[in-house]
Amino acid sequence: MSDRFSAGARVRTVHHDPPHHTRLPRYARGKRGTVVEPEGRALLADRNAQGRGDAPLEQVYAVSFPARELWGEGDHDVVLDLFESYLEDDDPGDRAEAAAAPGTSRAQTGGKDGKP
């Protein structure tokens, strides 16, 4: 897989809710952020944790999110390390739509999605 994003790229996390291990915590699903930097490649944890031999090597990115995007309030930033397949290009066209329906964030963190 090619390294799709560079520092400064606007991205949006996927809104998945898989029945298996993932490193995309619930509180950061379907959120808009900015790539801080690529970190290097790693075996996709979602597949690797299932004991499957076919986990792809994927680029991992540090992605920064404003607290307001994650929680609907706050003035800090949260940076997460996210696999490339968790990320989509943020379409500026969707942004106006999201701005019209704010305040849907919920206070949830990783919970049961714990790493081994």
Binding site: L24, E39, D75, H76, V79, K115
Partner: peptide, 12 residues
């Protein structure tokens, strides 16, 4: 002071 929280969700 701006606060940045680093959530180590992968290999870093």
């Amino acid at each position: 002071t701006r606060i940045t929280v680093w959530d180590s969700t992968s290999e870093t």
